[in-house]
Amino acid sequence: MFAIHGDICHLCGHRGATVADHLKPKRTHPHLIDDPNNMRPAHGVKNQRGPGGIPFDARCQTCLREGKPGTCNGSRGAKPMESDVVFAAYVPPVVL
């Protein structure tokens, strides 16, 4: 998914996204769980688990500096994205 969309958070527009945000919730669309077209890069939570289960701070460091919550994906929760949402940033696909 990151190879397609890059690391710019689709919710706040800042770099450093480390988690995949499912546009259509996994709970209601389990058939799309591995579909990269249903995912966009997002920032995670403070105690995100990385490789080997090691916790790290996946919140948006730019939003934190600006006094915003910084947990882009966590603040959206499991709400589906509206079909007419204009994403904060567009990252063209990477051509390999």
Rank of each mutant, 00 (worst) to 15 (best):
I33Y: 03
G77R: 03
Q61G: 14
A20H: 04
K79L: 14
T71L: 12
C72N: 01
L32S: 04
P80N: 01
V95Q: 10
N73G: 04
D7G: 09
P93T: 13
D7K: 15
F87K: 05
H5L: 05
H29P: 06
D84H: 15
N38V: 08
P30F: 01
A58V: 06
V86D: 02
Y90M: 13
V94K: 13
G74F: 00
K24E: 03
L23S: 08
A17F: 09
P41T: 09
V94Y: 15
H10C: 14
F56G: 06
D84F: 10
H10M: 14
L64C: 07
A89N: 06
V94A: 15
V85G: 09
K79P: 01
P69Y: 02
R27P: 07
G44H: 09
F2E: 02
K79G: 04
D84S: 15
H31C: 04
K68F: 12
G52C: 02
N47V: 14
N37S: 14
D84Y: 12
V86K: 10
P92A: 13
M81L: 12
R49H: 13
C63I: 10
A88Q: 15
V86Q: 04
P30H: 04
V91S: 10
P55F: 03
Y90N: 11
C9L: 08
I33G: 02
L96F: 05
I33H: 04
A78D: 07
K79A: 14
L32W: 00
D7C: 13
D34R: 08
F2Q: 02
N38K: 00
C60G: 00
G6P: 09
V86Y: 01
A89L: 07
K24W: 08
N37Y: 15
T71Y: 06
D34I: 08
M1V: 12
A3G: 13
T18Q: 15
R15I: 11
A58H: 00
V19L: 03
K24N: 00
L64F: 02
D34H: 13
D7L: 13
K79M: 07
G53Q: 05
P36I: 13
V45P: 01
G67I: 10
E66C: 08
G16H: 07
P93L: 04
N38Y: 11
Q61H: 12
K68P: 01
M39Q: 09
D84M: 08
V85A: 03
C9T: 07
A58G: 07
P30M: 03
G16Q: 08
T62M: 07
H10G: 01
N38C: 10
M81I: 12
C63K: 11
R27N: 14
A78V: 14
G67R: 10
P55K: 01
G16W: 08
R40E: 00
M1N: 00
R76P: 09
T62Y: 04
D21S: 05
N73Y: 09
L11T: 14
Q48V: 11
S83I: 12
